[in-house]
Design a protein around this nucleic acid. Sequence first.
DNA 1: ATGGCAAATTTCCCACAGTT
DNA 2: AACTGTGGGAAATTTGCCAT
Length: 533
Amino acid sequence: MRSQKANNFQLVIGLFLLGSGASKREMEVLAHAGLSISYTSITGHVKGLSKEGMARVREIVKTSMCQIVWDNLNIAFRVAAERLKAKNHFDNGTTGTVIPVFDPETGGHAAHGTLPFVMKPLRERTLPVLDWTAEDTLPSPQSAAELSSSCFWQLKRLALSHIPGVPAELKKQFEECPVVDQIPLHKSEQYPVPAMKLDESTLEGTLEVYITILRSMGLDDEALEAHGLMFDDGDLLTDSLKEKIESARRNSTTPIAGMRASVRRLGLFHGEMAGGRLTVNEHWGKPNSLWAGGLWWEHNKLLKRKPITAGWSGKKATPWKPAHELIHISLPAHIVDGFRIYCGQESLEAWAKTATMDEFDRVARIVSDKLFSTAAVEELRAKEASDRDITLENSILYNRDALFYIEFIHAIKKGDIGRVLNVLSIWMVMMRTPKTMPRYADAMFETLVRLKHFPPKLRQLFLANWLVNLTGRAYGFKPVDLLQEHQNSGRRSSTRQGHKQELGMARDDHRVHIHPARRDANRADCVQDSCIR
DNA sequence: ATGGCAAATTTCCCACAGTT
DNA sequence: AACTGTGGGAAATTTGCCAT
């Protein structure tokens, strides 16, 4: 009844089992029941798929332009009873992804050789030379105007979706955010490269990773030169390591070893995290301070969340995820309250039920001017010291800054890279603050200045491929470096004992890690056994 | 009915952490 | 102290399909 050949269904189940960390014996039981193919076949298929994927990459890179991204992957292996040869340890490796470059002009892949090496100026000095003028140190008037109008739109968007009683009709009338530089909707392809047991966190490691990825793409020096420039995203550390290699090997004549093809690009997910930390740290406030910060640390307590340490003086970096959520919860509340104050009626809900779009716009403008603008703060600060309301000033500054963050996140999802740039250019100034931020300020400044001097085609492709869209749906864009992080979390969760081989990592010992879910399942097995007996 | 072939499955081993 | 279970991989065996 069961067929060894017509086993598509069983194959899918088998791949699912492997992906969700089922144990070998579980897979075998299901294989015997006819629900899955055997364990050996599953691993065989995975290898086959991986081979197929790499073969496809090698094909594509011959005709299309590709970009690469890689990220460090650490998996913790825990041992309950440590022995001489069995310790708790981390396995450090690096995973990477190849992505064909999207060309907005054609709507398809950018052709191989579109960006010849000559488009990237030769490195002539040890230190990077940036051709900048005073006007590069501030956002341009146009950029500032665009940012203001986007932020005003965000304010209205949040108000519409959070104020109780807003009629559905009014929500429908609300138009999309003004477009600055939208990446056309498209579906990005991605091809993972085999995991490397290499640590990318050193100069040597970065170079090794780079060379390994290019080799697995089937590129040698000649082929790379024919391919032309290649974007590679990374965090600040990776970026600075690549920059150092470019400097140290500036006289190298071989494209791969001299990193001639590399066009460094600061990963926007890392920019997002820096921006979130910037906002929360700056407005966190101090417990028992005379003046509360705009983002009261008490908000976190109010929400009954796990206490976090934030603020510039913290020993550890502010955890990004809770910070991100906190802004998304707290800012809409500030906005709703702003409308409550300025709607001119006793009940905000009653006002909202009858408000027209014009009326809504009118109040939004007042809220924005009074509670979300630098001008409002300056007006308050001009008062006599005794009349000043520092708490209100702090709240307004928080409102303004948090809106930048919301705008950044929204622009990324939308795929409007022009709006992303506008936030970057204001953050470039704002991040000139304590701790690790000045390095982000520098990186953003460098990126913006480099972009300005790129040849038009290089600039266009750089921007249009800074974000990817795996689903091809509206609001489905995400930063390239986030894609890589997501890949890693997938690998981490499907990692089991012995599975290090699949990550391409050396198998130095057996039996080191049990997936938490597995442990529970095993326990459940035991209970069942004793019941049968 | 048979052989050839490839795919799928089964069997076996490793060797020690983990459990009772 | 006795016993169990672990994933990968090689080798052996079985199964399924096709052509003759």
